[in-house]
């Protein structure tokens, strides 16, 4: 059943596959991003309680939801590399860490900007915010560990262990922070969780989530290709590619 997968365990084949997939991801994500942004910014109706600044939702929600998914994808890649000794999964995990960190930072920054007019403050030590801040630290730790080792394979194994420890900790952190919040009785934010969105608002949001997901895919492919090149620098096919660039 898995036979068709086997050729892709070869770095060269997956590099080529990534190269063929990349334009599709890149073009569709750019198109959807433009559609989603214009739809959300200009055509979606105004929200009942919040003023026009609610339009930040169209970038805040996609980056927030997907930043967590990227972590899970990264952890899955690490697990695959550990269980099946598939070195390419390491390259994928290494490719994803900076993307996840950027998305988490984006979610935090847009949240802070949104918070300023709607809550009257940019930052509250609320459960969601705090756990996303910790998620950002986890990402930064993984990236730092990747950069700390000279040897890429070694770096991946070290960062992989940290990633898996982080997976165990993410639910713990989430619940601890939620508990902590209820105990301290900080401001409750019920305005944000509107009971149900109108479909006119929901569609641009879903478009943007899909656009962000495709963009993450494209970025992962670009970075994955880089990682594969860096990890296979001694192979003839990489040397050939390098020679072409060097001639120019």
């Amino acid at each position: 059943m898995w036979k068709w997968l086997h050729p892709y365990a070869k770095p060269e084949r997956s590099y080529q596959l990534a190269s063929t997939l990349l334009p599709w991801f890149a073009i569709s994500s750019i198109v959807l991003l433009v559609i989603g942004a214009v739809w959300g910014l200009a055509f979606a109706p105004a929200e009942l309680y919040q003023k026009e600044y609610y339009r930040i939702i169209y970038i805040h929600v996609p980056s927030a939801t997907l930043s967590m998914s990227v972590y899970m994808a990264m952890a899955t890649a690490v697990l695959i590399s550990m269980v099946w000794q598939l070195k390419l999964a390491d390259a994928a995990a290494a490719a994803m860490a900076p993307i996840g960190a950027t998305l988490t930072a984006t979610a935090l920054i847009t949240g802070a900007i949104w918070g300023a007019p709607s809550w009257g403050t940019s930052w509250v030590w609320d459960a969601r915010l705090t756990s996303y801040l910790i998620l950002l630290f986890l990402y930064l730790g993984v990236i730092a560990l990747h950069n700390a080792f000279e040897d890429k394979a070694l770096a991946s194994r070290a960062a992989g262990i940290l990633t898996l420890v982080g997976v165990v900790n993410i639910p713990i952190i989430k619940y601890s922070v939620e508990w902590w919040n209820t105990l301290h009785q900080t401001a409750t934010i019920s305005k944000l969780s509107a009971p149900s969105m109108s479909s006119e608002m929901l569609w641009p949001l879903l478009t943007n989530i899909l656009a962000f997901a495709l963009m993450i895919g494209a970025l992962t492919l670009i970075r994955f290709k880089n990682e594969v090149l860096a990890r296979n620098a001694m192979r003839p096919w990489v040397r050939e590619l390098a020679a072409k660039v060097g001639d120019k």
């Binding site: 910790i134 630290f137 986890l138 930064l140 730790g141 730092a144 560990l145 700390a148 080792f149 070290a158 262990i161 940290l162 420890v165 982080g166 900790n169 713990i172 952190i173 601890s176 922070v177 508990w179 902590w180």
Partner: peptide
């Protein structure tokens, strides 16, 4: 254990483990 082989492990160590300490601190 992750940073013992590195020359500049000190700052990295705090970045790696302080986030994981947060639940203990909170509870």
């Amino acid at each position: 254990a992750l940073t013992v082989g590195l020359k500049k492990g000190g700052v990295l160590l705090s970045l790696l483990i302080l986030p994981l300490y947060i639940p203990v601190l909170i509870f």
